[in-house]
């Protein structure tokens, strides 16, 4: 969630001078606990793409045209040249996360709109990257999924529940994951990650 911080300074001739600054849900949090690096994963945009009924073929072509990569299968992901992530989390549902590519809103989104139903969910999700040798031990305490690489390979993405909160988990490398949780409960989720990291 982006929170705009408004500060009013006295300007010239009593006209207010406004400064708007973007504040991320976890305010750029970063900490190492038991050799696990926990850091907020910051992104500029996160949109959901829903496939309209009976248009999967059209959507596949559009996805390839817009992002330069084939539309992933269910629970798989793609990363395009500019670092944009695409997750397929359901038969008819995808998420696209743009870390910082400047032309995403002006070019990629209008292109995707030609085939998909699009909802901007940038404010709804918060990302946390967990990384380290003991990350699996930490996740095993809160995540009900089988984290073995045979079942949950690098590049896979799954939606599940951790400490009663809805979480999308993406495996970047063997011991590095990005966890997306609703931004409204991001503080609670961060606390459960911290506690789990301390308790391994």
């Amino acid at each position: 969630m982006f929170r705009l911080t408004l500060s009013i300074r006295k300007g010239i001739n009593n006209v207010a001078k406004l400064d708007l600054k973007i504040k991320k849900p976890l305010d750029g949090y970063s900490k190492v606990i038991n050799q696990i690096k926990i850091a907020e994963y910051q992104f500029d945009n996160l949109i959901s793409l829903a496939i309209p009924l009976k248009t999967e073929r059209k959507c596949k072509l559009n996805f390839k045209k817009s992002l330069g990569e084939p539309m992933p299968n269910i629970e798989k992901s793609i990363i395009d040249k500019s670092g944009i992530l695409g997750f397929r989390i359901g038969l008819d549902l995808l998420l696209v996360c743009n870390p910082s590519h400047s032309s995403f809103v002006k070019k990629t989104v209008p292109s995707l709109k030609q085939a998909f139903y699009i909802t901007d969910q940038t404010g709804g999700w918060c990302g946390v990257r967990v990384d380290g040798d003991r990350v699996i031990e930490m996740l095993e305490r809160i995540c009900p999924l089988n984290l073995s690489q045979k079942i949950f390979a690098i590049g896979d993405v799954k939606r599940t529940i951790m400490d009663h909160l809805n979480v999308i988990i993406f495996r970047e490398t063997e011991k590095k994951f990005i966890l997306f949780s609703p931004s409204s409960s991001s503080g609670s989720f961060l606390k459960s990650i911290e506690i789990s990291s301390r308790n391994i």
Binding site: I74, E75, L91, P144, L145, N146, I151, K158, T160, I161
Partner: peptide, 10 residues
């Protein structure tokens, strides 16, 4: 059928 065994809590 698509995702394999998943915990009932989901």
């Amino acid at each position: 059928p698509l995702l394999g065994p998943r915990d009932a809590s989901e």
